[in-house]
């Protein structure tokens, strides 16, 4: 009983903390200075149609690199905790209809995922969304066939290669442009606004992020499916 009262008090305190913020909150009527510069820069300097992508890949590129590292650490943690594979229970196996259907859908979902991360600078979407979509394709395969085994070497290879190339592309910025230009997309020609091959290295970097996120989350799902 005393615990309930404490919990209610904590919730009440939380509400009291949030109330002034809610009461005094005023929505912006215009973009702030930093946001305006991001929008202007994305249109004029980077040729990237999607401003969010420009912010993630270029202006806050170092944050994104750190975030990919956090994702890698989480994957490593899951892999460390669930490393002992139990003897897989021999199930009857799914029907041929289910297997054929899932393999047919698998290709389509992978294609959609690749489309989303290569068009990250043009349309809503990008590496993270595309990577998650690719993972759902693998999840479909796991759900449709419980005896499925993935080749971990390929997953590991894709993940390390994309992570390494991400950093190498960032270092090319330092090498070709200047000391302050880590992850600058201007190392490649910026192209025409609104075309697939535009915005310099942004599509390349986002594709690498997509591959990395896809392979990492696939590893997580595969480890969890083995338990």
């Amino acid at each position: 009983m005393i615990k309930r009262i404490f919990i209610l008090l904590a919730i009440l305190g939380l509400i009291l903390m949030f109330l002034p913020f809610l009461r005094d909150f005023e929505f912006h009527q215009e973009l702030g200075e930093l946001s305006s510069q991001y929008v202007e820069g994305s249109v004029n300097d980077l040729n990237s149609q999607n401003v969010v992508t420009a912010v993630i890949v270029t202006y806050r590129g170092l944050d994104t690199l750190g975030e990919v590292t956090v994702l890698f650490l989480a994957t490593a943690g899951v892999g460390f905790l669930l490393r002992k594979k139990k003897t897989s229970l021999k199930s009857r196996g799914s029907s041929e209809l289910l297997q054929t259907g899932s393999q047919f859908l698998f290709v389509l979902i992978i294609l959609t995922g690749i489309y989303i991360f290569t068009h990250g600078h043009l349309t809503p979407g990008g590496g993270f969304q595309g990577g998650v979509l690719i993972t759902t394709a693998f999840l479909l395969l796991i759900l449709a066939d419980t005896n499925l085994k993935f080749n971990h070497k390929i997953l590991l290879f894709v993940e390390s290669i994309s992570g390494a190339f991400y950093v190498i592309i960032g270092l090319f910025g330092v090498l070709l442009i200047g000391m302050n230009s880590f992850l600058d997309p201007a190392i490649l020609p910026l192209g025409n606004f609104g075309k697939l091959l535009s915005a310099g290295a942004i599509p390349l970097i986002y594709s690498l992020i997509g591959l990395k996120v896809g392979s990492e989350l696939t590893t997580i799902i595969d480890k969890m499916g083995g338990e």
């Binding site: 993630i56 994104t64 975030e67 994702l71 899951v78 905790l81 998650v132 997580i220």
Partner: peptide, 16 residues
């Protein structure tokens, strides 16, 4: 966008 992906990874870690 970044917070969603981190949330997903942290949830996966907690579940394991």
């Amino acid at each position: 966008l970044t917070a969603i992906v981190i949330g997903l990874a942290v949830t996966a870690l907690m579940l394991s």
